[in-house]
Write a protein that binds this DNA or RNA. Structure first.
Length: 479
RNA sequence: GGCCUCAUCGUCUAACGGUUAGGACACCAGGUUCUCAUCCUGGCAAUCCGGGUUCGAUUCCCGGUGAGGUCACCA
């Protein structure tokens, strides 16, 4: 098996959103797929100190952990190529930049930002593309670190292979002299990511589509540095469902951790992100993370952007919730119980949960679904009056039926769902009522909720005493 | 504007050049002794347009159109 080293290299400029998470996920899947020969690296690209946001590094780490995307090398865990934060690697970039200077492939930029702007304006006015290399100084000053350092490009046509996009090509106009070290001494992304990928022996570079147009520049730099290029893979954007733009923080992209707080399962998120722009060619829709690791492949990644469809995500989340064992679900759902359930008996909660499992779309639905199991619901006759069948009965008839139910249930000795159902069936025959009337009425009078699970199971779990109390209250309620 | 990329149901997608263009989400209808959900069954719904090549194009080629990206001392 070949060695695969992938990396996720975010900038600490805020929270992590789904687009970034998917890029990380794909790189991670690829590494995990290679088993012991695969390494996933987390490197922080903090070379723009202006844009850096306090706390983002920890936040990125937390987000990956939540997803279960564990890195083998990188910040916090270390590794053979420490440090994994670019701002702590400045000496390395300086050294590599100096090599380019010595080889005559980099030079100090003597122009002021104002002068550069003037060049740009002029090119724009003349309707031709601006290329810095048209203004290469003949006698650049010696680089003393106070000026930006530019790569002296060697414009040429390139055709290259992208693991996702296939054959790609570009002309020499795509290549220009770009800045590799800024005047503040920090390197630019264009330069340092290539240096680090080389040093860290990254074999597969996965990144999103926005970098496609700069790839020719990168290729030119690989050549100048005499580096073997890694496998390049360009991932299509994740787009907002109604927007036409890539999903960015500005377009309402959410913090990936917020999904967890809203009751989404990380494995559902992983499944959803993986199948957003990738499929295994079969008709399988629901995947465990292990299945994804086995079947993921770059050549089945889509070339075109995909929209983030919350409906599908919601459905997938439900699928994963249902796939959990009751014990596991119970652990996951811990922070979501309604306040009144906190002190409840664990056994009792587990029974309630088993009834709710099929009904949860997110874990956050739990309180609305289970409240009446833990606290006395407020009597609300509008639920009865709003029922098509029940409103045909007079209040007296309704109470008469409830009293009958109360009577038979009160003498019930075996309080199991099966025998409760049997008793209710007998009552059905005795009263000559339709199930739609009797069951609905009892259901409402014991839960006072617009909907609830099957009546027999609900009553069984509520317990005889509670059921008797609630029915008694309903019967004696003045309305 | 230059350059680059992309294009199948509303959405995510499948289809060695030969299929009644398949699946999933959503939606609609029905079933599971009541409601909600699950589950099951059925329905609605797509190859951007125009030229080629070919006996035959969703598929290959060319041209449009549309969409997106990029042209920073940001990544």
């Amino acid at each position: 098996m070949t060695t695969i080293r992938t990396r996720f290299a975010p900038s600490p400029t805020g929270f992590m959103h789904v687009g970034a998470a998917r890029t990380a996920l794909f790189a991670w899947l690829l590494a995990r797929q290679a088993g012991n020969n695969g390494t996933f690296i987390l490197r922080i690209e903090d070379t723009d100190k202006q844009r850096e946001v306090e706390g983002s590094i920890a936040h990125i780490g937390d987000s990956l952990q939540w997803l279960g995307v564990q890195w083998d090398e990188g910040i916090a865990v270390g590794g053979p190529h420490q440090p994994y934060i670019q701002s702590e690697r400045l000496e390395i970039y300086k050294e590599w930049a100096q090599r380019l200077v010595d080889a005559g492939r980099a030079y100090a930029d003597p122009y002021s930002p104002q002068e550069l702007d003037a060049f740009r304006e002029k090119a724009k006015a003349e309707k031709r593309p601006f290329l810095y290399r048209d203004h290469r100084p003949e006698q650049p000053p010696a680089w003393d670190g106070s000026q930006p350092l530019r790569f002296k490009s060697n414009p040429q046509n390139y055709t290259w292979h992208d693991a996702v996009m296939g054959e790609l090509s570009s002309g020499e106009e795509a290549i220009d002299d770009f800045i590799i070290i800024k005047s503040d001494g920090y390197p630019t992304y264009n330069f340092c990511h290539i240096v680090d990928d080389a040093i860290m022996e990254v074999t597969h570079v996965l990144r999103s589509q926005e970098f496609l147009s700069s790839t020719p520049k990168f290729l030119n730099l690989y050549d100048a540095l005499k580096l073997k290029r890694p496998v390049l893979a360009t991932l299509p954007f994740v787009m907002a469902i109604d927007g036409k733009k890539k999903l960015g923080k500005r377009d309402g992209a959410k913090d990936i951790l917020d999904y967890g707080k809203e009751g989404y399962l990380p494995e559902a998120m992983v499944n959803f992100l993986a199948t957003l722009g990738w499929n295994d060619g079969t008709e399988q829709e629901v995947f465990t993370t292990d299945e994804l690791i086995k079947t993921f492949s770059l050549d089945r990644v889509q070339k075109s952007p995909a929209r983030f469809d919350e409906q599908r995500f919601l459905w997938l989340n439900g699928q994963h919730i249902r796939a959990l064992s009751l014990e596991e679900l119970s652990k996951r759902v811990e922070p979501f119980w309604p306040e009144s359930a906190r002190s409840a008996d664990p056994e009792y909660r587990l029974k309630v949960l088993s009834l709710a499992q099929d009904r949860l779309k997110t874990l956050a639905d739990l309180p609305a679904l289970t409240q009446y199991f833990f606290e006395e619901p407020a009597i609300d006759w509008s639920l009865v009056d709003g029922n098509k069948q029940l409103k045909k009965l007079s209040p007296a008839q309704q109470k008469e039926l409830l009293q009958a139910a109360l009577d038979v249930l009160a003498s019930q000795t075996d309080w199991s769902a099966a025998s409760i159902q049997e008793t209710l069936n007998q009552l059905l025959e005795k009263t000559g009522q339709k199930p739609g009337i009797l069951f609905s009425l009892v259901r409402i009078a014991t839960t006072w909720a617009p909907f609830s699970p099957a009546l027999d199971e609900t009553l069984a779990i509520l317990g005889k005493e509670t059921v008797q109390n609630r029915l008694t209250q309903a019967v004696s309620d003045p309305r």
